[in-house]
Design a binder for these strands. Structure first.
Lengths: 267, 267
DNA sequence: ATGTCTTTGTGAACGCGTGCACAAAGATGG
DNA sequence: CCATCTTTGTGCACGCGTTCACAAAGACAT
């Protein structure tokens, strides 16, 4: 999961906790499915199961929005869909630009999830002149030079960065300067932005590494080896380097069987 | 950010808090960059800035791994890279299968981040017979029928689901039955898995909706309208439905200007 | 109208994560 | 060998998020 907003972490927007906001889309999705099946009402228990959360948590989440349920009955599906949509700002149109139309950018442009709920791909932008004019997902790619104009002309406030890591900060700066205030970052880099700009990141590599951690832990438990005992024990903390500002340490460890790191999109 | 593990939320693995584990890949990335520039040591302050976190948090995180720093000096870059890699289980090889080779699956297969740190794409799997044999990112796509065999033969324990939402649970079940214990889910669905299986999800649609929420809030603050006053006020909670088990509610609201929801990959 | 039954909404307790602030550790210089 | 300076490692307090458990609210039957 793309995790973690970068700025204003504790801002508790209008009384709705951040954790609750992050779950609203989950509820909305489950409710939409119920709505399509013409289910009129749903209990907190049922909906919680569908959304994969605890029913008490769901009720508390909804309590931040107001009292929209009926005791003894449950929640009116259609009404709740409307309320959550409104709260999330999905009743209005959000034009979005995608910068970096490589494999990932193209996949995002083709992703149906964009169009489904208020989001509209206003433009695809790439730095490669050869891409210019080429249609992707039915939308012609435009060159980076047009970035500022596109954003101001269309009143875009949400940008998606799908460039290589090296270009991300630069693109980010231009987006912000052009008036973008929300960024979804797929590049494996930490973006620095001024206050008032929200950044959320989606990082495949990080997710995999977290899974690997738990996977290793599961494997380690089975063998019941406290991992300190058998096998190659890690080397001692390396003799505290001689000169702090001396020659670049050419030795010091490097015993780990790491492969070399490729140039593009490093972990 | 792909957020939220699904099971064993509070398991506090071997004393390392979940929040810390989620940040280790961030530190590792920053450290790798330093390592490539042959920087011998780094202070908590510098590294924290590079990773985009608080220095106190970083020090506390590292304290869970052990005392790897030198007071008055900082941390040895190479040694820390090794320690974190080992802790995350990146010193070993993790074969990974990607199921669902559409736009997104292809993008993932081409993603350099896979190969960079211990992860190796063992196989690409798709349900479409027309895809079978076709090479993507240099790897021939195999048919879903081979799924179980591929997993057991290669000892795969991590699976990536990039299928449409409708197929995700089914694929998930087969993966788990075949021995997969960690899943990275890109499909917009809640997956249910047995205990002992970790699921992390990456959901573009959710991320966008969270951004929209904050975006709306920013816009609302500027106009300084408490949003309750002007414009179309939401309808009253709908007259408490007549018959709870009666005819499917054909009215009740529907006043929101939602577009219709496409069939594939709904929000 | 009254009683029973279901389900919501929430007060309260608890645990995790974060950040402050400082003591301890070690390097460095004289 | 001692003083000073830098930077780590961590005790502590605080706040957010989660969960329990229950009273209040309403539906429904009689």
């Amino acid at each position: 999961m793309a995790t973690g907003r970068t700025h204003r972490p504790a801002t508790r927007s209008r009384g709705i906790p951040e954790a609750t906001v992050a779950r609203l889309p989950l509820y909305l999705r489950a409710l939409t499915a119920l709505s399509e099946r013409s289910v009129p009402t749903v209990s907190s228990e049922e909906l919680a199961t569908a959304a994969g959360v605890n029913s008490a948590k769901l009720r508390k989440d909804f309590s931040y929005l107001g009292s929209y349920g009926t005791r003894g009955v449950g929640y009116d599906v259609e009404y709740l869909v409307y309320q959550i949509s409104r709260e999330l700002g999905l009743t209005q149109d959000w034009p979005v630009v995608i910068v970096g139309i490589g494999n990932l950018g193209a996949a995002l442009a083709n992703y149906g999830g964009f169009a489904s709920r208020g989001f509209r791909v206003a433009a695809l932008i790439d730095a490669d002149p050869a891409m210019a004019g080429k249609p992707v997902a039915g939308i012609p790619v435009q060159h980076t030079d047009e970035l500022e104009k596109i954003i101001t002309d269309n009143g875009v406030s949400i940008g998606v960065i799908a460039t290589p890591a090296g270009a991300a900060q630069q693109v980010c700066d231009r987006l912000v300067a052009a008036g973008i205030t929300s960024i979804l970052n797929f590049a494996p880099t930490v973006l620095s932005v001024p206050d008032g700009v929200d950044v959320r990141k989606v990082d495949l590599s990080i997710e995999l590494q977290i899974l690997a951690f738990h996977e290793q832990r599961k494997a380690g438990e089975e063998i019941a080896a406290p991992e300190e005992a058998a096998g190659a024990v890690p080397p001692p903390p390396v003799a505290p380097h001689r000169a702090p500002s001396g020659a670049p340490g050419a030795d010091s460890g490097r015993q780990g069987p790491d492969g070399d790191v490729p140039a593009v999109m490093p972990a």
